[in-house]
Write a protein that binds this DNA or RNA. Structure first.
Lengths: 347, 347
DNA sequence: GTTAGCACTCAACTTTTAAGAGTGCTAACA
DNA sequence: TGTTAGCACTCTTAAAAGTTGAGTGCTAAC
């Protein structure tokens, strides 16, 4: 692919910026007037013709202006968008209240982000794969049930009710608690392997079946939400963009948001590839989710320490305000990293 | 309001049933043909004219057929719909897996219901107001935090992290646990009043501030979700009904579903009034939620014992299949009552 | 290399026309 | 007196035809 000369670049830039604002195909005359190139529309037309041949812009129909192609957007995002840093000073602080439940934080984050950007947003809870166990406690709740409480490094708390046939006396319970904590404490969930398990059961003696249940509970508690811990907000923002708001597309998109299954694909995809700031941009068909071929998706990963990471994403029309969006994501990413790394701060 | 004579009733019934199916205004000729009245269209026209004057049907415009008014639907739901019981035999069993987490059950329920009916559905978790405390446990998680676990009669488990300044030794912890459990066990959340609290603090001595925190946590844990524990599914089903699927309305409706705040209104409304089967039908403007003036809403309450109850609802176009919907709700209500009342059954 | 000018294209909007469904009314009928 | 056939009228909806205007490509001149 040949490099674009400076003039073509400027023209392409102008076209895209104009289109981002208006959402209408942009014609040669507009560029001639509003750019600082001082070229006549005819000249612009020639250049535009070239740009179209190179695949950066597209004509919706013969006698319309040009709109950016996926490739055009890609070029814009990769090459034309850098100059944003001066505005960083007035970067908005996100007002995120510290609450102890991660769930609450995440819900708040997507909401704030959706309001800030006017796009649809999503966030996934950090995956627990490599998160470490910090604390396990079994308690009697009544005759037939034991409550298992599991706390991880990230202060994520999980509960699980375990039905029991035989009654377990308090002393045994205490022993089991100590056993579990000494054996499992500090281990990541991946590190709890068959070896650990059989050793554990051996030591538990006649109560090994309870241990089984507990471990099942641990696994289940963790796995249960693995695929589902995903929050969304502002799905209805898509109605603000005519190119997405016809019944057919809107329905598909909002379904995707409701089902969440497809969003998981997105999140996982993001975790796979790693970019400079952990920010990735999928334009149109680049997206792994077919439903979103008419959208652009921008995702970022945030960290919770100990190798745990979650994904936060914005879904909007292709002509989204990439600068603003990426800026927002960067800020937010930093704040999230901050919040989750210092859970006992100045709350 | 004068009673309708038999013929008018039959005609109204025919009009409504036809309209429920087709969604198109229904004309006199259609009724003349398809009803077993053996009347000419002209006669039907006269009767329809009367029905319109009485307010049961409406003409969208001069030369269109008639559609039911809110009053018409109301009459239909109250008087014309009874004959459904014969089909109860082939009543569909809902496939709801027993899982220990109520959350999971609820999510499953709305999903199944949405699939079954092709309308948008919602369900609220039972409200905790009158639910009784069963078990409280404080545990050390690390130096600066105590984990409070709260279990209620309905086996709902809540966690709350409590930050502490001073370290609390294990013995004190044990005492506090015993104190809390003996004092609060069996009390409903409404019964924990200032008297109980001050007595509690007195007994806790120098650690009364921890008690405060715990009680705050209890209140917060309960209240936190009070307004938010609401699950929805099938919101995009509304796109299946042209009369609801234009951008404006669809956006409003789906927003309502996303925000959930308005749904809370609905749920609460339902809890207030009590009908025979606990099933209520709001047609158009009868609904307490303004956004849903073009919809009908059918709600049912289900019980979790001990006075706890939740609400399940279906939102669809006015011309929804009331018979099917109410049938579904009844079945589901029974199943939910069943599931939640025998939590330790043959799972 | 740049520009002015002009013919041409095509979506989008407006107007016209036609068709069809449905009504209300009148007059005839049992 | 209730029912029905017939007809003129209304009004939506869809299709057809006309109009406008933005934008292009090309050519020829600067």
């Amino acid at each position: 692919m040949p490099e674009l000369d400076e003039r073509k670049t400027k023209i392409l830039n102008a076209i895209i910026r104009n289109y981002l604002e208006t959402g209408e195909p942009v014609g040669s005359r507009t560029i001639s007037k509003y750019s600082d190139l001082n070229l006549s529309s005819a000249t612009i037309r020639n250049e535009m013709s070239d740009l179209e041949e190179l695949g950066y812009i597209v004509q919706p129909h013969t006698s319309a202006g040009r709109i950016p192609s996926d490739l055009g957007y890609r070029f814009y995002v990769d090459n034309l968008m850098a100059e944003k840093d001066r505005e960083v000073s007035e970067m908005k602080e996100f007002v995120i209240e510290r609450t102890e439940k991660m769930e609450q934080v995440l819900k708040q984050v997507v909401k704030v982000l959706a309001n800030n950007t006017n796009y649809a947003t999503m966030i996934t809870a950090p995956s627990y794969h490599r998160n470490k166990l910090k604390f396990i406690q079994l308690s009697h709740v009544d005759q037939e049930q034991i409550l298992a409480v599991i706390v991880t490094e990230g202060n994520i708390v999980k509960n699980k009710m375990i039905p029991v046939q035989e009654t377990v006396d308090n002393e045994t319970m205490l022993k089991l608690n100590i056993l579990l904590n000494t054996s499992l404490n500090g281990l990541s969930l991946e590190e709890i392997n068959l070896g650990t398990i059989s050793r554990l059961k051996e030591q538990a003696g006649i109560h090994s079946n309870i241990i089984s249940d507990v471990l099942d509970a641990v696994a289940a508690a963790v796995q249960e939400d693995e695929d589902l811990q995903i929050y969304t907000s502002g799905a209805t923002n898509i109605f603000k963009y005519p190119e997405l708001s016809d019944s057919q597309k809107a329905s598909e998109l909002i379904s995707a948001f409701e089902e969440k299954q497809q969003l998981v694909t997105l999140a996982n995809q993001t975790l796979a590839g790693d970019e400079e700031h952990g920010i990735q941009v999928y334009i149109g068909n680049e997206s792994p989710v077919a439903t979103m071929r008419d959208c652009s998706v921008v995702t970022a990963t945030y960290e919770l320490g100990e190798g745990m990471q979650g994904t936060i994403g914005i879904i909007g029309p292709k002509r989204m305000d990439y600068e603003n969006v990426m800026d927002n994501l960067k800020t937010l990413k930093i704040q999230l990293d901050h919040i989750f790394k210092k859970p006992k701060g100045d709350g």
